[in-house]
Design a protein around this nucleic acid. Sequence first.
DNA 1: GTAGATGCAAAACCTTTGCATTTTG
DNA 2: CAAAATGCAAAGGTTTTGCATCTAC
Lengths: 150, 150
Amino acid sequence: MENPSGFLDALERAGYRLTEPRRLVAGLIAERAGHFTAADLVAAAQRRRAGIGRATIFRALELWLELGAVERIDLPSGQHAYVRCEPAHHHHVVCSECGRASEIDDVGLRAFVDAVARRTGYAIDTHRLELFGRCPACRSGSQRPARRTA
Amino acid sequence: MENPSGFLDALERAGYRLTEPRRLVAGLIAERAGHFTAADLVAAAQRRRAGIGRATIFRALELWLELGAVERIDLPSGQHAYVRCEPAHHHHVVCSECGRASEIDDVGLRAFVDAVARRTGYAIDTHRLELFGRCPACRSGSQRPARRTA
DNA sequence: GTAGATGCAAAACCTTTGCATTTTG
DNA sequence: CAAAATGCAAAGGTTTTGCATCTAC
């Protein structure tokens, strides 16, 4: 759905090797529209007999996580999932129906965080926000509840 | 640190039995200042040879979670943790140093969520916000970095 | 050629479940 | 006394690790 080269670039820039397994995992991620779990990728890899080990997938995700190419979120169900992300933004709205994720900018949120800091006296240095709802597409084709991604 | 009767009341109100193990777990939770993990409780129970099984602790947490007596949050590290909470509020600032958690109200956040909904076209029905930073106490006694809770 | 990356299988975790036994109301 | 709750140990599920082998640079 979107091209995987961002992931490969990130690796290259950070001095990691561009290996075949990593290209494949990047490809798998690229063809996912919304969020996905490590298990999704493992299953997809097996389905197409890519010969990539579970460990490789986890290691690649870990790498991209630390490079800021993906973000890890926690679904309300408690499962872990990942979404692709541009290094600068760090929040998403995730569609609870189709799993598609959209990035949102911090405007306004920053103000809120500052207000909380002022009210509570905490020196806030991190925050995580996850929003869940139905995306415009799923809302319009409201009839049949589309496939669940997670 | 705070009394455990809220937990027991919640059980009673919901028609669950007030058992000895549940009293003990409530006590363990009550003496924790901030967030805690299931593992924390299991360890504490074993340390004092309370004879409470792992399963009982998980089952009790599950119960309180659904009764709204605790909320489950996910630390930046990816670990699961719980915090006590008043049924009406649903966000916390967690001190990354001592683990103490303070509740915050939604004023302002609601406005932000609405703005996102408007901008993205999503019908947002859930959101999770977790804030992390250093609490006033830890900031003042800035010298030695206090114990880590998680 | 060599450091880095991989695959496999085992290990380590954390959480849940089945079931015989105990406890609460 | 019956229904609910418990403890134990075993099962489930996910993520990590050790290590011999392979591969990108």
